Simulated assay, not measured.
Amino acid sequence: MTYDLAVVGAGIVGLAHALAAAKRGLSVVVIDRDAQANGASIRNFGLVVVAAEEPGRQRKLAERSREVWLEIAGPAGIQILHQGLLAVAQRPEALTLLEAFAAMDSSAGCTLLSPGELGRRQPGLNLENLRGGLLSPAEIRVESREAIPRIASYLEAELKVDFRFATTVNGVCPPVVDTSGGPVRAAKTVVCPGDDLTGLFPGFIARHDVQRCKLQMLRLAANGLRLGSAVVSDLSLIRYPGYASLPEASSLRARLEGDSAEALRNGVHMIAVQSADGSLVVGDSHHYGQTPDPFGSEAVDALILQEFGAVFATAPTVAARWTGTYASAPERAHFLERPGDDIRLVMITSGTGASTAFAIGEETITELFN
């Protein structure tokens, strides 16, 4: 059999391309070296960020990807665990930044909240330490470690996509994909390598100065706290481009460099989301290199938990810890390369796979098969 499309990589980016192609009625095979999803796509918050993305193209990609998540969630058996993003301000500079963001046209639907309104919206916050906040209704949260396998199952059962797991791709030369399980024939191929920088087409990847970003994350045991939305803090505001690109972000960064220098050095910011069992997924940190070490740091975890304690009034109990890596490139959220007429290489280099992959997949398939 010769497929219309072979997709190399079964993370969220690969699945997004397979979905876009299968919805067009194309025959698709997905090939992945692991036996099941195991990389960055299942080690994250499962948070589809919209309002905090950079206005313009990146924001539009996030808006479309959110639409696709909502379209497939029911058929694929994926639960939307909560909606919205609550950015809380600990420092006056953070509140000034949120006020500036709220005044922008791109913040439509977002609501500024006083400390009292914060408490009514989200019980359990450390209100003595908070000056206000901003609620965006657009974000959604899924459980990544469950959602990714369910998307694959949905593609296989309902859209007749073939999967070949535990299979290494050695080379791509359409119409043949050379794999450890023998040749696979496909008219066109999309390579979605995650953070594999030296496997397929390393020269094209090297053009973008890609390295790996290592992160640390925690799961906190359920303790009665119920989140109505994802919650982020001051440190997050200088990382998310939607906020960080505003002039007011410079004052917040200067303040953080004075009183949170160690957190900044370790790329720490606080995101908290909730799972169906009441536990919280909290993180994260950012360390960069071609091959970051696989070891978690207790000191870095302590910085994350310190920030959690500044935002929430409850004492956390750590139930699990893990690290992950994703591809990262300076000043580039993602890129597409054309190693051949019938080959596309797609890499998201900003940690925004859950937020933008579905829209990127649609664009790639439209261009490749147009």
Rank of each mutant, 00 (worst) to 15 (best):
D4F: 02
L5W: 08
G9S: 08
G11Y: 10
A16L: 01
R24C: 07
S27C: 02
S27W: 00
R33S: 08
A35V: 13
A37D: 07
I42Q: 08
I42A: 04
R43N: 12
G46E: 10
V49N: 08
E54H: 13
Q58Y: 14
K60Y: 05
K60L: 14
L61P: 15
A62R: 14
S65I: 14
E71T: 15
E71W: 02
I78S: 07
I78K: 11
Q83G: 06
A89S: 14
P92K: 07
L95K: 11
G109M: 07
G109K: 01
L113F: 04
G116T: 10
N126P: 06
N129E: 06
L130K: 03
G133N: 08
G133S: 04
L134I: 09
A138S: 14
I140A: 06
A147W: 03
P149M: 03
V161R: 02
F163K: 15
F163Q: 15
A166C: 03
V169R: 06
V172H: 07
V176I: 15
T179P: 12
V190A: 01
V191I: 13
G203Q: 07
F204A: 14
D209C: 11
V210Y: 05
V210P: 07
L220T: 10
A221R: 14
S229C: 05
S229L: 05
A230F: 04
V232N: 08
S233P: 01
L237P: 09
P241L: 02
P247Y: 00
S250G: 04
S251V: 12
L252I: 13
A254E: 14
A254T: 15
E257S: 11
G258F: 04
D259K: 06
E262F: 00
E262D: 12
G267M: 03
M270L: 15
I271K: 00
G278Y: 01
S279Y: 01
Y288L: 09
G289Q: 04
T291C: 00
P292W: 04
S297I: 06
V300A: 03
E307Y: 01
A313G: 07
R321T: 15
R321G: 13
G324Q: 03
T325F: 00
A329L: 07
P330Y: 09
E331K: 11
M347W: 00
G353V: 14
A354S: 13
A359P: 07
A359C: 09
T366F: 02
L368D: 09
N370I: 03
